[in-house]
Amino acid sequence: MHGVKREQLSKDAKQRKKERDAFKISHYRQLTDSVLADKQKNIFNNDTLDETSRLLDLNPEFYTVWNYRRDIITNHVFSNLKDSQAAHTFILKELQFVGKQLKSYPKVYWIWNHRKWLIEQDDLFDLKQEMALIDKMLTMDSRNYHVWAYRRYVVGLVQDKMEHEEDIILSNREEFNYTTKLIEENISNYSAWHNRSQLLQKLLNSKTEGFEDKYSFLVKELSFLQNAYYTDPDDSAVWVYLRWLLSPFFLKDLPQDKRNSILNDQLRDIKELNESEIEDSGKPNAWCLKSISYVQKMMNQHV
């Protein structure tokens, strides 16, 4: 139970809830009994499919019923369809059912799992269309762990179908620009910073324009990051990302003078930011202090 307020019901309210619940319980138990009995008998038909819809509407976490539903789809629906176009039409309808569920329960693993299974069954599925749903869901909650995982999964499927390396690079660039957009909207979006770190490694490997040279890229990225930490020096996401940019992953390939200049500049800027924090609030900023000590550690490592 996450984020639900505790309530102390009065005796009367408790009684009323009990009466309301009694009706719901009897309906739910009857439906559950019927579905599980049909499941045990391997009954795969339109009626049992509808039955699972009704039960999953009441309880989208009932994984056994999702399993049964997939068995019905495989053994009844698909086996009675004449071609992949018919399967495609069915799956679109099924995705609407799942979409409605996701609107109410955007964090239920089992629903996401079913969606993935569905699009894997459909040879004609338009993956780009799926990106629209993902964009919309990230607008509603830009940190939803499931949506981000699903986004990377769908992008992966899209890229699997690409024949040319340049198309894959372009797709990674688009995803990278998407993280820039989200970070500009909200620098605290650690999910976006994370995805940026993933894409960055791919783009650096591909040596594509703007990413050919680690040093010039790093200078640019640090200035982007600096805007963020000046905006909100208490934001943890930014500082964790900074730690990575100044880690051996980037620094090890740079010549000594460039490495030193990057670390010296950062040290100066963070110290300056900390001074202004002291002026404003009377005390140093903990993240600045940590980062200063980190930069100093990196400087010593490379002497």
Binding site: Y145, Y190, S191, N195, S197, W244
Partner: peptide, 16 residues
């Protein structure tokens, strides 16, 4: 494992 040294759900997934 990720850029922050922590781990995610599958390769590429955010640390949690």
């Amino acid at each position: 494992s990720n850029f922050d040294g922590a781990y995610g759900m599958v390769p590429g997934a955010e640390s949690h």
